[in-house]
């Protein structure tokens, strides 16, 4: 068994942070064979990023397929793919300039103030995303309608190097999505979903670093991109399921159930 991949990825991360931002190239690798569908990643992400009802940056799509007794289940963890050719950016920026930007390290950045102001740009971006990764912060709280608005919902949180607080209105009314936990990366931490995964299906690191674990995985494993044919050039790479006859990786039929 590969020994402590988490520690190794931390070391990879620390090495990359010593380089200028432009020399870093963040990617995520997800081994679906090891995804057990427990949604720990999604819960961790929501707590980390103070996601209100109806929003989640990380979704684990679940589907059942075939019928009894051949019945099987499939889990597909998905989030913003941080495309190198992001359709959302093109769509939004045509209506509100600079609302969505691409950082040199690959991360696609949303400007909440601009996107909250230009509903049209937000709507266009949401529609343009082929990965259903963009969600709208409609402003509510989970503890709305209870005796108290609980403190974990109205706490400060940190995204894109900004301190935000939803009680003060930050991010509310805007569209939101996975940030690759940029605020954590810059502090030398892996994205929240990576550490918490109980099946150890999640990997993160710098593609430009040839000795990083993710670079090694890209070389060693047969990886594939979601909807690769669209030319979006995603930064999330998947491993797995090519050896299973029930799900063809090239055309994950079961995924179509969720990704209409």
């Amino acid at each position: 068994m590969a020994l402590n991949e988490i520690v190794r990825m931390h070391e990879d991360l620390e090495r990359s942070l010593k380089k200028p931002v432009a020399k870093r190239s963040w990617i995520m690798v997800i081994d679906i064979r090891k995804c057990v569908g427990d949604h720990a990643c999604a819960v961790s992400c929501m707590a980390e990023n103070v996601c209100p009802p109806g929003t989640s940056y990380r979704k684990v799509f679940e589907t059942e397929y075939k019928s009894f007794p051949e019945l099987d289940r499939f889990f597909m963890p998905a989030n913003c793919q941080h495309c190198d050719n992001p359709p959302c950016m093109k769509a939004a920026n045509s209506m509100g300039k600079g609302a969505i930007q691409k950082r040199p390290d690959g991360i696609v950045v949303f400007d909440y103030a601009k996107l909250a102001k230009s509903k049209k740009a937000a709507e266009a971006a949401k529609k343009a995303c082929p990965y259903y990764s963009i969600v709208e912060d409609k402003g509510g709280f989970y503890t709305d309608g209870t005796p108290v608005l609980e403190p974990y919902e109205i706490r400060d949180f940190y995204e894109y190097d900004k301190k935000l607080n939803r009680k003060k209105g930050d991010a509310r009314g805007s569209i939101r999505k996975c940030t690759f936990c940029l605020h954590r990366l810059e502090s030398g931490m892996l994205p929240a979903c990576v550490g918490t995964c109980i099946g150890r299906a999640m990997y993160f690191g710098d593609k430009n670093d040839p000795v990083s674990l993710v670079s090694e995985l890209l070389k060693k494993e047969k990886t594939w991109n979601f909807k690769a044919g669209l030319g979006t050039n995603p930064r999330v790479h998947y491993i797995g399921y090519e050896d299973r006859t029930k799900i063809s990786v090239a055309t994950p039929a079961s995924c179509a159930a969720c990704h209409q």
């Binding site: 520690v7 931390h10 427990d38 720990a40 931490m189 918490t196 109980i198 150890r200």
Partner: peptide, 14 residues
């Protein structure tokens, strides 16, 4: 800076 794994129920402790 290093977070280990815990299940969603454990996380829902908050």
């Amino acid at each position: 800076k290093i977070d280990a794994k815990v299940c969603p129920k454990g996380q829902a402790g908050v």
